[in-house]
């Protein structure tokens, strides 16, 4: 009896170790393939030049710039909205049917497929507001997509501020607004920002929402206004793999672009994770 129990335990634990090992092996293989095949492509010219000869030569500079602006504008749009919503939910909202609907909306938005965000952007920003296929339409679509992530991160950050802080501030005669702006938000800000940085990675890597709202396969030019079409790193990878007729030359460029995108996303998220780790260690309450 004890022997079968011990055997079962051993088998079960080994199975768990096998599962996590499989996951790790895949991750290592994946990163190895991308970085070993794409790493060769990376040089100064690749990062700073425009594509040439129907995407078979040259670099990806316009795509880097496009992704940069799409990300900055969308976060600039989503961050204030996200923080305000989180402030409302944590500080002002009393349980009511409206607050329940807001919560269900946020959870639903977090689960809506990104391609549907793309159709939403096409209908609302491209067609209805007549922004056309542009940096602006794409950034707004991505901003809407990032909102639920930022709201959840901000809400969690604000809730982790000890209630004593709020009570002390109110007891000293500060108003609710002063307490939020001068005590609660400054305390929660580092955690809000790390959550936001992680959503930056998500926004920078999204392809489906910008397919019909912002992205263009090829332009030598950099965007001069928010109404221009832009190239973007994720869309560039997709286009190189599915369009054009020089696969032998395009696939290596796609790998190179993937390295740049992946390095960007991983770097940004790693920074966020390290900041958060340090904050947790330093935390005095």
């Amino acid at each position: 009896m004890t022997r079968t129990r011990k055997l079962q335990a051993l088998l079960g634990t080994s199975l768990l170790k096998l599962f996590i090992a499989l996951t790790a092996i895949f991750l290592i293989l994946f990163l190895y393939v991308i970085f070993s095949r794409g790493g060769k492509m990376i040089n100064w010219e690749f990062l700073t030049q425009s594509p040439r000869r129907y995407m078979t030569e040259g670099g990806i500079f316009p795509a880097i710039i496009g992704t940069f602006w799409l990300t900055v504008l969308s976060i600039g749009f989503a961050l204030p909205l996200g923080i305000f919503t989180a402030v409302f939910l944590t500080s002002y909202a009393r349980p009511s049917w409206l607050v329940r609907i807001i919560r269900v909306s946020i959870n639903t938005l977090a689960g809506v497929p990104s391609i549907i965000y793309g159709l939403f952007g096409l209908t609302v920003f491209v067609q209805f507001f007549k922004f056309d296929v542009s940096l602006l339409s794409g950034a707004l679509t991505l901003g809407v997509l990032a909102m639920p992530v930022i709201i959840n991160a901000s809400e969690e950050a604000i809730r982790s501020v000890p209630p004593d802080f709020r009570e002390a501030s109110l007891a000293l005669g500060a108003t609710e607004r002063q307490t939020i702006l001068r005590v609660i938000l400054p305390t929660a800000l580092p955690n809000i920002l790390t959550g936001t940085i992680i959503s930056i990675g998500r926004v920078a890597g999204e392809t489906a929402p910008i397919l019909f709202t912002a992205a263009t396969f090829y332009t030598r030019l950099l965007p001069t206004s928010v109404m221009d079409e832009v190239m973007a790193l994720p869309y560039h990878i997709y286009a190189l793999m599915t369009e054009g007729s020089h696969a032998a030359k395009q696939v290596p460029i796609a790998y190179g672009t993937a390295v740049v995108l992946l390095a960007l996303v991983l770097l940004v998220s790693t920074v966020a994770i390290i900041i958060r780790y340090r904050l947790r260690k330093k935390k005095k309450w």
Binding site: V33, E206, T207, A254, A258, L262, L266, S269
Partner: peptide, 17 residues
């Protein structure tokens, strides 16, 4: 957490190529 942030298009590239 990092794994969750890998863009889907890069997974697509890995699958295709």
């Amino acid at each position: 957490e990092l794994l969750a942030g890998i863009p889907s298009v890069v997974y697509g590239l890995f699958g295709m190529a």
